[in-house]
Design a protein around this nucleic acid. Structure first.
Lengths: 330, 330
DNA sequence: TTGAAAGCGCTAACAT
DNA sequence: ATGTTAGCGCTTTCAA
């Protein structure tokens, strides 16, 4: 399978020069109808496909952007990826997606690999809050980048993130407004800014209400959260009247743990999420949550990245306001 | 950002030849410790990243395999993609994923694009049953390929698919065994072999039982299925005692439609799915379904593809037996 | 309108 | 142990 025809082969068969082949196939430059026909036929009969690597090397453009996501098992990121494929096409780019699998160390390796592939820009959705490599990268970026959803905790560099702290405060306040006093927070992994800021928001709201914050760690993981909930529910004395999970995936796990014990959401224990993934709106789930409106976020991030690539922008910083979506679980 | 350092720059700075740089950075060939150090330092201080396009062109290897998926919003494919990233790494390959968004015409364009990128192999998960381009491609493949999950209906070429017909027969028989006589089948888009064969299996099982098959079309789509279910549920006379959905995504939609009307799964209407995506096992959902054991399927497909690429295999055909997973909805 | 020639950045064969 | 050289397949001047 190594014998894919080259433009030279096509040229030979069509009895023209390589440059003519290039002109015909790219549609640039003037070619007579007769030769164009010969070239097209030759190309087809040989099953010719232009070698992207060679084209890239010569033109020094790749039209691709590197995307680093934590995982595709979390629907939030699967939806992100899906939307990205769609939107990227509209700005004439193709996304090259890589996954860290939530291993903070993997990020650096992946970024380097992507840069080696000469992506024109980087959309980074899995930056851990204190990533040293990323901090250095911000100071002297090799390729334009936008951090998406997760960012460095100091706020360095280019990013498009939701206002996680504000969102968590509003969510907690909503639960307080419903009369809850024992509100359990199921935190994500605080090495990520999302978890860090959501936890901070919850703490602040509880403090203001003079209530004791109670935190357990689900680390953004479905299975882990399920386990933790077993512990919480085992002793009736520990039971909260409301659970605020730092993302929808964990909230779904909480709902599942409740359901397994016959505990009814809202009626017995209120459940609040964060993200508004598409599953949350199903009638059977009907999760009350803070919405990230990710289609808008992605569009913003992509437009920002393209702006940086094309030089029309020098900084990209968008703190997006989340919205409370009240459904049936709180 | 166009000025990424080249190996020539590194060589100049380290006062060695380009080949030495190459040797140091690839770890092949003998280099003295002193020069290696100089080169590494030079590379670091310049922020050097090897240009993949150039390397590829020279070595004629890309180490990447092209993957065509229908969508990432269907968790079945999101999970597929996730597993793929993981497994591909283990066989030293990196997956280049593209989406057709269930547009059969997109497949050809995407395949050509991927071939242009000189992927070493193609994993095709969105082939429509009568795709003319694919038929021609099988006869004269430019790059080795394996069709995954969906294939050409005649069974041409290389593929790894579940035995959809058998699965549908067994699922239907199970429902019959539970005493159901009015079993509604919610079909996927029959331009795909999965839908075609599952429908055929359902039909065959119903025929054998001398029962009337009743089919509606959800086209593998959540929203579409939800609509169709409204129609079905509106007239009590139309109501089946069991619903067999051609995939889990549609089954979830069915469950959701039932839940919205206060109709209890199993107790009022039994629901059966196909795929066993991870959501289906949640306690709150607890869907009875036919399992595809996709980790095994992916491993099989990947091993097969690598075999084709490396020439150790000439054909790959695996018809995988699905397993009935009885949970709470049927 | 077409062709000849050069060169993108890398690696591997060959020479030293 | 290190350098020299050639060439992967394309596009793009420049010349004809």
């Amino acid at each position: 399978m190594q014998g894919i025809a080259t433009s030279r082969d096509v040229a030979k068969l069509a009895r023209v020069s390589q440059s003519t082949v290039s002109r015909v196939l790219s549609g640039k430059g003037k070619v007579s109808e007769a030769t164009r026909r010969r070239v097209v036929e030759a190309a087809e009969s040989l099953g010719y496909y232009a070698n992207e690597a060679a084209r890239r090397m010569r033109t020094k453009r790749s039209d691709s952007i590197g995307v680093v996501l934590p995982s595709l098992n979390n629907p939030f990121y699967a939806e992100t990826a899906h939307t990205l494929y769609d939107r990227a096409k509209q700005v004439g780019r193709i996304p090259l997606i890589a996954l860290t699998l939530n291993n903070p160390a993997a990020n650096q390796t992946i970024m380097k690999d992507l840069i080696g592939r000469r992506v024109e820009g980087l959309l980074l959705a899995s930056i851990s809050a204190h990533d040293a490599y990323m901090q250095a990268y911000c100071a002297d970026p090799v390729v334009p980048y936008v951090m998406y959803n997760r960012r460095l905790v100091q706020g360095l560099g280019n990013w498009v993130v939701v206002d996680n702290k504000l969102g968590a405060i509003e969510a907690t306040n909503y639960l307080l407004g419903q009369g809850h006093r024992k509100i359990l927070f199921v935190s994500g992994d605080v090495t990520y800014s999302t978890a860090f800021h959501r936890l901070a928001g919850y703490r602040e709201a509880m403090d203001r209400a003079n209530l004791e914050p109670v935190v357990v760690y689900g680390n953004f993981d479905y299975a882990r959260t399920y386990e933790v909930m077993q512990y919480v529910l085992d002793a009736p004395g520990r039971r909260p009247t409301a659970v605020f999970a730092a993302n929808d995936l964990m909230a779904l796990s909480v709902l599942d743990a409740l359901s397994h014990r016959g505990i009814r959401p809202k009626t017995d224990i209120a459940v609040m999420g964060f993200d508004d993934i598409s599953w949350s709106s199903l009638h059977g789930i009907n999760l009350t949550t803070m919405s990230q409106r990710q289609d808008i976020m992605i569009q913003t991030a992509l437009d920002g990245l393209v702006g940086l690539i094309e030089g029309s922008l020098s900084t990209v910083r968008h703190l997006i306001k989340p919205t409370l979506i009240v459904r049936g679980t709180a």
